[in-house]
Amino acid sequence: MKTRDEVTPGGYRPRRDAFWFARSRAYTVFVLRELTSVFVAWTVVFLLLLVDAVLGGSLPEFAALAARPWMIALNVLALAATCFHAITFLNLAPRATVVRLDGYRLPAWLIQGGNHSLWLAVSAVVAFFVLRGFQ
């Protein structure tokens, strides 16, 4: 019997496709999903600038900076990206966390629904404390 090692490896291997991410819609959506992380990083930087301004007493200057048109444009993009991140990340979560009740799997939509409800609730709590708080 012939062993596998005797088969000469090789054959034709195409070069790396530099535009693989443009070859299908799914690949493009995947890359966009991953690139939301750049805006996640930007948002953290922006919030650190805000915290620095609040603690340093320069909130009016920060507000003026944030109101510049390019800054608003950047943050609108960041809003879209972080929302896209939130939707995709919370939707994919049940694939890694299989919850079993009574031996059978909890359906994905239940976990996803729970995740999105939690997202709404946390957002509401954060908005409440930022805008009003317990006076």
């Binding site: 948002t43 922006f46 991140h85 957002s123």
Partner: peptide, 14 residues
Amino acid sequence: AALLLPVLVLLFGV
């Protein structure tokens, strides 16, 4: 990031 960032950037950034 999913739970906190969208609302914060919506409020402070937009």
